[in-house]
Amino acid sequence: MSGHSKWSTIKRKKGAIDAKRGQIFTRLIKEITVAARSGGGDPEGNARLRAAINTAKAENMPKENIARAIKKGTGEIAGEVYEEILYEGYGPGGVAVLVDCMTDNRNRTVADIRHYFAKSGGNLGEFGCVSWMFEKKGLIQVDKSLIAEEKLMEMALEAGAEDVVEEETEYQVLTAPEDFDAVRTALEEAGLTFLEASITRIPKNMVEVTDEKNARSLMKLLENLEDHDDVQNVNANFDIDDDLMEQIS
């Protein structure tokens, strides 16, 4: 969990989420559009769309933006056609990196992603080269100041969660992908707000990065990937000591 948890914490500390709200809206609009295209425009019968709408609402996206994205997905109004692509590779220090993209130009996107990997000293690999090291899970992050661990554990497990993991400043609620929506809804109805809630890829094992140069290059790679307009999510299996993380941050 360390890689995902620490990377999320770094982004929050830097204020990246607030500073790049426009970029977040763009990503959410893409997700809503693709979800509506693949499963229909009714969120009651489309779990992926329902989750995307919930995330958009949590980010205070205007209702009209959500409605327009759904209509683009269902074809009621004209819009771009996005292709979903998963890129896989190795970053500095042998860290496995997964990059979820939605793009209307595959050639442009793969050229940019390959460039970022090469620039960092890593390399873009073939399909399947690192994805086996990750497991798809629902992940809900809750600030530790909001609730006691035992109470959260009780609520989450009752709603269908698999586990609750304690991190330095937050709790990680883990679910099977198919149970994510139900657990999220139950916790929201209990009055909890989330630092993050999404279906993501959790590494099965971690790669410890101890070299400062590799750590800096890895963080730069992740930042470059996150900043790309076609990138939806980035996951990596790194573990960096807290002191080194503080030093390079």
Results as ranks from 00 to 15, higher is better:
L139Y: 10
W132Q: 02
I147S: 02
H115D: 06
C101H: 00
K151F: 02
E154L: 04
E126D: 04
F134W: 05
Y116R: 08
L146N: 15
M102D: 03
R108N: 15
G125T: 14
W132Y: 14
G122Q: 04
D100V: 01
M102H: 06
M102P: 04
G121K: 08
L146R: 10
D112M: 05
A111L: 04
K137N: 13
K151Q: 12
I113F: 02
M155A: 01
D143G: 09
G128V: 02
I140D: 02
G128S: 13
H115M: 13
V110F: 05
N107R: 09
L152D: 08
M102V: 00
E135C: 04
K137E: 11
H115Y: 09
E126T: 03
G121S: 01
S120R: 14
N105Q: 12
E149I: 11
L152R: 15
H115L: 10
E149P: 13
N123M: 06
W132M: 07
R108H: 05
Y116V: 01
E149H: 14
L98M: 11
N123G: 11
E150G: 10
E135Y: 07
N105T: 04
D104K: 06
L98F: 12
E135Q: 14
K144Q: 08
M153W: 09
T103G: 02
G128H: 01
M133G: 12
N123E: 05
C129D: 06
K151A: 11
A111F: 02
L124D: 02
S145N: 07
L124W: 05
D104I: 03
G121L: 05
M133V: 09
A148W: 07
G122T: 03
I113S: 05
F117D: 03
G122K: 07
F134T: 01
R108L: 12
Y116E: 10
L146W: 12
K144F: 04
A148T: 04
S145P: 11
F117H: 01
F134D: 01
I147L: 11
T109E: 04
K144N: 13
G121E: 10
E149A: 14
R106P: 01
A118Y: 08
G128T: 09
M155C: 00
K136N: 12
S131M: 15
F127E: 14
V110N: 08
K151E: 11
F117E: 07
N123H: 06
V130K: 00
E150Q: 15
C101D: 06
S120C: 07
D143K: 10
E126I: 15
L124F: 01
R106C: 00
R114K: 14
W132S: 03
M133E: 12
I147Q: 05
T109C: 15
V99E: 01
T103P: 04
V130Q: 00
N105C: 00
G128K: 06
G122W: 05
K119L: 10
S131I: 13
G128N: 09
L98G: 03
M153Q: 15
W132L: 02
L139A: 13
K151I: 11
A148L: 09
R114F: 07
L124M: 12
D100I: 12
S131H: 07
M153K: 14
G122V: 06
A148F: 07
F127S: 11
L98P: 04
V142Y: 06
M155S: 01
V130A: 03
